[in-house]
Design a protein around this nucleic acid. Structure first.
Lengths: 229, 229
DNA sequence: AATATAACGTGTATTTTTTACACTAAGTAA
DNA sequence: TTACTTAGTGTAAAAAATACACGTTATATT
């Protein structure tokens, strides 16, 4: 218990909206809460910012504590500040999003008892979420829709080596519409940020597609040139 | 003095980045502070959020108190949350921007003694600003640069009736580059959101240009169609 | 071995959009 | 009337976007 200067009676929290792609579905990372309020509810990974850390640092720490994931570049996209958004006091929440390649290499393991577990959930089939998290998530989705039209974000969702069809799937899922295969390929290749590998896809039960990888060096040079789907 | 739940020891503030255009220069609205810290410094209009108001409501109130302006639609664009950004405690600042038509019709008159005065200042010639306000402003500028490429924001800066040359000036100022007159006109007219008036410019000392106005109805229908300069 | 299957990978013609570019017209002021 | 300054206009060439369909190839099945 401490005495306070008037005005200094807010809490600030972070909520993380992590998108993932498993090759077929767009997923989002949720935790099952182990604390009141909303104990046992599904929620976005989130918690209060500490007094001695910046909100950016806090986002990293909280993500790690609740999911075990570290070194994920997240981008801040909105601060949610309605009076009634948190039942236990005045809490402003700063939301971040990131896109992740999903795979066995990243085990989800909450380090804190604040979350019972963390799990990837299909965006198309979500449970009821705690607080205003559905709203926060919706706004995150809108954000990446706008962003992916102009930046090659799709590659953050894909494994290091991927096929052009996979890239197209990501665009189609996020934009919510079908794209023409030939035109899509023409365009995505025209940016010259994909490197064709010698290698082919393995373990598929039909004709294997050529694998590509994303050339970040070339992408960074590209700068300013905007893409548009 | 009140006792606090741990974590509830932050303050949240609002900072407003208001852009204005006087026909020639891009301006920004600053106040001269009348309170510590940074008393007598120039700063963005900003203050602490009250406990019983949402951050959006707070932005409206604070703008009004410090400048006398009301009913300005402002859009939130970023939350600044570095530990050291405020010398008197842990203050997270949520930044908003708006674009305004500048003219004699909007007197600037602080209603609170927190600001000595409010004044439009040329963006190209700014004084040293309080806190991290230069940083907040820079980020706001980047934001509107990106936005104006895709939305007809320019019209928010212009008077109700304006010439095509004025529209072009706004684009050139914000984007920081010259545009071709014929191509610019072809493009801006192609969106069919401008209505040509019978009227001509008055009081200019050379050939008077035709006046146009922005047709918000048509613009709202446009939706989805993106513009790009 | 032959066959069926399912996704891979490719090209062209048409339309639309973008770009580059320079002069005459109109109004004001001296 | 002349000088000045900004308004206003068109076209050709290049680039980008769109619409559209079939032979190829690896695997699985019989």
């Amino acid at each position: 218990m401490t005495a306070v200067t008037p005005g200094f009676d807010f809490a600030v929290s972070i909520d993380c909206v992590l998108f993932g792609f498993d090759g077929a579905e767009l997923k989002i990372l949720l935790i099952e809460r182990n604390e009141e309020p909303f104990k046992d509810w599904w929620a976005l990974p989130g918690n209060l910012v500490n007094h001695d850390e910046s909100v950016d640092q806090s986002a990293q720490r909280i993500l790690k504590e609740l999911t075990g994931l570290s070194d994920i570049y997240m981008e801040q996209y909105y601060a949610f500040g309605d009076v009634e958004r948190h039942p236990q006091g005045r809490v402003i929440s700063v939301a971040y999003y990131a896109m992740l390649r999903l795979g066995g290499d990243k085990p989800l393991k909450p380090l804190s008892t604040y979350a019972k577990k963390a799990q990837w959930v299909n965006v198309a089939n979500l449970p009821k979420l705690a607080f205003d998290h559905q709203h926060i998530l919706n706004k995150g989705l809108e954000k990446i829709k706008r962003r992916i039209k102009h930046l090659p974000l799709a590659f953050e969702l894909l494994p290091e080596k991927f096929t052009l069809t996979q890239v197209q799937s990501v665009y189609e899922l996020i934009l919510g519409k079908k794209l023409d295969k030939r035109n899509f390929r023409k365009k995505i290749l025209s940016f010259k940020v994909l490197k064709e590998l010698e290698e082919k896809q393995r373990g598929v039960s039909f004709r294997a597609a050529t694998l590509y990888k994303f050339d970040k060096r070339k992408y960074n040079k590209l700068f300013g040139k905007e893409i548009s789907f």
